[in-house]
Amino acid sequence: MTTAQKRTAIDARTLINAGLRETLVDNMRAKFSQLTEERADRGVGQMLAFLAACAYSEKPLSPSPLVDDFWHAFLLHTKAYRDFCDEHFSRFLDHQPGYLDTEEHGGGKELRARTVDAITCAGYEIDMEFWPELDLVQCSQCHANCSDSPNHP
């Protein structure tokens, strides 16, 4: 008889050292004062899981607006970001904002669902609090709680 073992999901926060993680948490808390340290730390993990999934996905992926804010915080630390990409992916992961053709790639909700699936398939933990638009109607950057909305955390 063969027994299937469920593997434990990887906490992506382990992909960077504690000092860099603390810096990113502090940067995000300075930008969003209502963000708790614990939630900011979890957000760093979701951003890192997103980047890990992007490195190996053959299809475009898309961060949630909040995960994108964490990515922006990491990008501001150019050397640390470049070193991270080199160490983990042997290449630089570009940030290319813009809209993808919805006929070819689907809308924002479909892209985010694909992203969550890719993160899960790559073995990383998903924290659905950072992917809230999966519960919303089909949209793409409607700004109803997006990164430039006054309601955005």
Rank of each mutant, 00 (worst) to 15 (best):
R7T: 13
T8V: 14
A9S: 10
D11W: 06
A12S: 10
T14V: 13
T14L: 11
I16C: 05
N17E: 14
T23V: 14
T23H: 10
L24T: 10
D26C: 04
D26I: 05
A30Y: 00
K31R: 14
F32E: 06
F32Q: 01
A40T: 13
D41W: 01
R42D: 10
R42C: 07
M47A: 15
L48R: 12
L48C: 12
A49L: 04
A49N: 06
A52F: 03
S62C: 12
P63Y: 04
P63M: 03
L66W: 11
W71Q: 06
H72C: 06
F74T: 12
H77V: 01
A80N: 12
D83E: 15
C85R: 06
F89K: 11
F89V: 06
R91N: 09
D94T: 09
H95C: 02
H95Y: 02
Q96H: 12
G98I: 02
Y99E: 06
L100P: 04
D101W: 10
G108T: 10
G108Q: 12
E110H: 05
E110S: 10
L111M: 14
T120S: 11
C121Y: 00
G123Q: 10
E125N: 04
D127I: 13
D127E: 13
M128D: 15
F130H: 14
P132M: 03
Q141L: 04
A144F: 08
A144Q: 09
S149Y: 01
N151P: 00
